[in-house]
Design a protein around this nucleic acid. Sequence first.
DNA 1: TCTGGGGTCCTAGGACCC
DNA 2: TCTGGGGTCCTAGGACCC
Length: 413
Amino acid sequence: MDAFFASVELLRYPQLKGLPMVIGGGRRREDEMFERLRQTHPDIEWGPGTLDRIPPDAFPRLADYVGRGVATTATYAARQFGVGSAMGLMKAAKLCPHAILLPVDFDEVRRLSRTFKQVITEIAPVMEDRGVDEVYIDFTDVPGGQREGGRVLARLIQKSIHQATGLTCSIGVAPNKLLAKLASEFNKPNGISIVQPDDLQQLIWPLPCRKLNGIGPKADEKLKAHGIQTLGELAARERDWLIATFGKSYGAWLHEAAWGRDERAVVTESEPVSMSRETTFERDLHAVHDRAELGAILTRLCEQVASDLQRKGYLARTIGVKLTYVGFTKVTRDLTLDAPTADAAAIRRAAGQCLKRVDLSKRFRLLGVRASKLVKPGTPEAQEAAYSGPARPKPRDKAHPDERTDLLFPELD
DNA sequence: TCTGGGGTCCTAGGACCC
DNA sequence: TCTGGGGTCCTAGGACCC
């Protein structure tokens, strides 16, 4: 299989690009920012992409930011100060206080995302969706796809995306998905990079392990502790040693990946596994002292999950909750129901049951609700799940030993 | 200066059944 | 009374990705 990996560069405020600028802030903050901009610039007609028409000095400075948001992305001018995506904005403000802070225009991002994927599938229909700004493409069967090793097709895709959206796009071309993704980073933004099997030693092995899709911070740290910094050093290790050190599955994968081997197909369609909603509070909350507020938040999250399920046409058989405590430790509880549901009240009851099993004596910063074991109504799976006969015994339904936990949702008793 | 929100996949132990 | 192995489901946690 020959694969492309394409990622579009979504940062596109032309008149601002040379300035240090950070985009992000969290949904709530972003709504507030929009509101403020509307007030200061009532003359601007609001719609997708209108941020482009606002003068730079109208935007808030990062130094004025208060809250728990993170940076979605940053211009190169801001990156020079050490600011990067996923960084907390309070930290970013210390590094680069004069940066402009821009809200994310989610509607516009979704529109651009749809458009660029549509452009691609019209040219190369075997496309795998990897999020708002990334896709894999299997171009083995695209007419003319092999010309100049794929470069001609890559250029056509770039040009078509730019015409339709104004976005630039970086493309990696390689014999498999793993290498294509690596290749796409060689020439950002708006680049094309081609990696062939023979390039392994030259182009891939000098890279830090962390560049590989699947080696995250933890694995990277462990690799470093064993003196492995680059993919070449990883490739030099015995397969058996990797398996002994990293486990059967992950160790074997590390070995294959370091040698540039990857057999995964480009997957054009997939069913969702779960749907969830979560929110980080503006201040840490406590089950007893902030009971009313938390109850309202939980209800809202359940309603959102229910409406997501209904809109997308799914029922869920398992409902779960998630908490993040002040110290950032996380806990989850879930409950499998006898009959699948997309009903807000049923989800709320199940979530309440789950919450009774967690320690609510400590303050927490995040609450989430998750629906999983999804079925489509009317399918055989759904029928079976709905009429599964007598309720199975629920083995572990112990309340948390902290008796105050019942204070949170008394109506459930 | 702490660290968003939405996902997927993997591991591992216990219950339960044959 | 103790000893099994295999398979599936449920639950909890964690790594990783965009």
